[in-house]
Amino acid sequence: MEILNSTIVITGGSSGLGLEMCRQLIKKGNKIITCSRSLEKLQNAKKELPELIIYKCDISQESECEGFAEWLRINHADLNVLVNNAAIANKIDFVNDLSSLEKMTQEFLINFHAPIHLIKLLYPLLIQNQNSRIVNITTGLVYVPRVIYPFYNASKVALHFFTQVLRSQLKEEKIKIIEVLFLAVDTPWHEGNPPKIAITAEKAISEMLEAISKNKTEIRIAKVKLLYLLYRIAPSFALKKINSL
Rank of each mutant, 00 (worst) to 15 (best):
K120H: 14
L98Y: 12
K91N: 13
L118V: 07
K120R: 15
K156D: 09
Y123E: 04
I119K: 09
V144W: 02
V147K: 02
L109G: 08
L125E: 02
Q128F: 00
N129C: 05
K91W: 05
Q128L: 07
A87T: 11
A86K: 07
I127M: 08
M104H: 13
V147M: 00
V83P: 00
F108N: 14
L122W: 03
P124C: 11
V157I: 09
V95Y: 15
M104S: 13
T139Y: 03
K91Y: 06
F162D: 03
S99H: 14
N129H: 05
D97G: 12
F94R: 11
Y123K: 05
L159H: 04
I134D: 00
Q164Y: 13
L98H: 11
N96Y: 13
A86G: 11
Q106V: 15
T139R: 11
N129G: 06
T139G: 08
I148T: 06
A158R: 12
Y143W: 05
Q164C: 09
P150E: 06
L159S: 07
N96F: 13
Y152Q: 03
K103Y: 14
V157F: 00
I127Y: 11
V147G: 00
A114E: 03
N136D: 04
Y123R: 01
N90R: 10
I110C: 01
S132F: 00
Y123H: 10
L122A: 05
M104T: 11
F108K: 14
F108S: 13
N153R: 04
H117P: 04
S132D: 01
L126Y: 04
A86P: 06
K103C: 02
T139I: 08
I116Y: 09
L141I: 04
F161A: 11
A114R: 03
M104I: 12
G140P: 01
L159M: 10
G140H: 02
D97E: 15
N131F: 06
Y143C: 02
N129Y: 04
Y149D: 03
P150M: 09
S155D: 05
T163F: 00
T105A: 12
S155W: 08
V83T: 05
L126N: 07
F162H: 08
A158Y: 09
F161E: 12
P145L: 12
I127R: 06
L101F: 15
P124S: 12
L98G: 10
V142T: 13
I119E: 03
V147T: 09
Y152I: 01
E107P: 07
V83I: 15
H160F: 10
I148P: 07
I127H: 10
I134T: 02
N96I: 09
T163Y: 00
L118S: 11
P124Q: 12
L141T: 07
A89M: 10
I119F: 06
Q106I: 15
D97L: 13
Y143K: 08
K103D: 04
V95L: 15
L122P: 05
L159N: 05
H113G: 08
T139C: 10
